[in-house]
């Protein structure tokens, strides 16, 4: 990423070899997953760990198969995704709007800098007791945590982005008497967008972590709550199965966020350079 310095390939390494290597690395990755899955099956079966603590993969999958047939599972998944999406959406809208506003007015930037620096590192989980008192175990409790945590990710990135605007471009726009709005639309926004997308990617992962956390600790409805229930009722296989589901969900969120980033920024030099090479 940072190696913009030209790396001279050795003479005997033409491009096709690299292609072959890329499919080879995908194969190696698959092999890694297969070895990991096999270990997860063999280690408990061989009695290396107590299988009441770590059941073999096949029984996790069995229990997942049972789960998938129940409406409860899909309802929980829907609730988790709703909380996640809603929280991320609110944080994104608020973060971008405030970020562009604060970033483009230098007085506001100086005025809010210390406050942002102080509020940002406050761990969102510190708000859990307050959320419980205000909203009980309803979805809003978790939503509060999700919005708080992901808002800062977006805001800080957007602030960086707005400050990165090329001064020449800004002065030019001003000389041509662009209105404030069209200045934001044509100069500020294109520079800020890559940063906002980074913020979105980070915020999507953080929002998922806090959605599941809230459900697990507060008991708002969703996958995290199912895990808590499985844990208290000693359904170990079921608990592992649900943890695997949250992991898959996390991977999907990461992949989708990265795809979206590339798609929205396909005009941007950094993405175009990457796909050209």
């Amino acid at each position: 990423m940072t190696t913009t310095a030209p790396v001279h390939p050795p003479v005997a390494a033409p491009v096709p070899a690299r292609r072959r290597w890329r499919s080879g690395s995908a194969l190696l990755g698959l092999a890694g997953v297969a070895v990991f899955a096999a270990l997860l099956e063999i280690v408990p079966r061989a009695g290396l760990v107590n299988d009441r603590y770590l059941p073999p993969l096949s029984s996790m999958v069995d229990s997942l198969a049972d789960r998938v047939q129940t409406g409860e599972f899909w309802e929980a998944l829907r609730q988790t995704l709703t909380t996640w999406g809603l929280g991320l959406g609110i944080a994104l809208a608020a973060g971008i709007a405030l970020g562009v506003l604060i970033g483009s007015v230098s007085f506001l930037r100086a005025f809010t800098a210390t406050t942002i620096e102080f509020l940002r590192p406050i761990p969102s989980v510190a708000l859990i007791p307050l959320a419980v008192l205000l909203y009980g175990t309803s979805m809003q409790s978790t939503l509060l945590l999700v919005v708080y945590a992901s808002f800062w990710q977006v805001l800080v990135q957007v602030l960086y982005g707005v400050q990165d605007v090329d001064p020449v471009a800004r002065e030019t726009a001003r000389s041509y008497r662009f209105s404030r709005l069209s200045q934001i639309r044509t100069v500020t926004w294109p520079t800020t967008l890559p940063y906002a997308m980074t913020g979105l990617r980070l915020a999507a992962a953080v929002a998922l972590i806090l959605t599941i956390t809230g459900e697990l600790i507060i008991g708002t409805p969703g996958l995290g709550n199912l895990i808590a229930i499985a844990q208290t009722s000693g359904a170990v296989e079921s608990m592992y199965a649900l943890v695997l589901v949250t992991g898959v969900l996390g991977v999907i969120v990461n992949i989708l966020a990265r795809r979206l980033e590339r798609r929205i920024l396909r005009w941007h030099p950094s993405v175009r350079r990457e796909s050209a090479s």
Partner: peptide, 18 residues
């Protein structure tokens, strides 16, 4: 790196509190 990357990405994606 190629061997371990998908598994590590999966582990990273699991929300740690679970």
């Amino acid at each position: 790196r190629a061997f371990t990357e998908p598994v590590m990405e999966f582990f990273r994606a699991i929300p740690p509190p679970v």
